[in-house]
Amino acid sequence: MTATDTDRPPFLPLTSLDTLWFQVAGTLCNLRCNHCFISCSPQNHTLGLMKFEQFKPHLDEAVQYGVKEFYFTGGEPFINPEIFEILEATLAVGPATVLTNATRFTEEKIARLAGMRDASEYSLELRVSIDGFSPETNDPIRGPGTFVQAMNGVRMLVAAGFLPIITSMRSWEIHQDDEFLREFKARLAEIGYTRPRMKLLPSLKIGQEAKRDHGYGKYEFVTEAMMVGYDETQLLCHNSRVVSDRGVHVCPILVDKPDAKLGVTLRDSLNGYRLRHQACITCYRFGALCSNAGSLEGNRLARSGSEANPALGTTPTQN
């Protein structure tokens, strides 16, 4: 390889289609968070609400490919009027995780969710985004009143037997994580959530977040040279795709980027993707960004990658 070659963005094949995301709410959301990496809002129609009849063929195709788990995001999935039918159909064939802001729940809706959870042999995970442990720390990011609304949603979920995963984007320094978690767990205990599951996310410096904080630096790209010795299984795009009302895209982060749309059906999307976007470097650094598992602290993956152990095995090639 010449120096020029190794500076190229790397091409990552899809090794195994294990995880399928559905952008069920498109880019539509009842909130307008100022860190949203795809700038969702009540007016952002870049991607629309998925109808059940659009969703179902993709679910059926996913079963054919042996997909292991399903994730639902937006926007806010619960503004989709068919979300319950969509989740019921999913829970008949596999586990489902829904990413929500928890501001639209009612007792009736949560009872319905609990019913479908109990009727399925699979897990129904709710991942609730709250970005601070108080109105003072959350509301400037997510909007006035959203802390109280979301915590009320969490309280109802916990009362119904859910153990929601509270997800927060790190708008503080990484060394302050422990303090943040301690404060937040105390607030959650007050509403009855005594064994909280928490996930901290690094910020993605695109969309609204690039305006709130700052974008990526000029040289922040993933290159082919950086992939040498790196454990690529940490990147979502090696085993995942996302479906929207427009087609199949490489990942939820890049879902509104025209070049990240790979086709109309899952079959169209089985080739790999060149990691040409600057946001790819955040996944590269932190790994497991979108999955339910917590993200590792920065740069740890680069180290573990160089010590990657071949005995752990690799995933078989798709097809």
Partner: peptide
Amino acid sequence: ETTTSLAFLER
């Protein structure tokens, strides 16, 4: 048990 689809196990 609860996060592994039957389709995946068949694969």
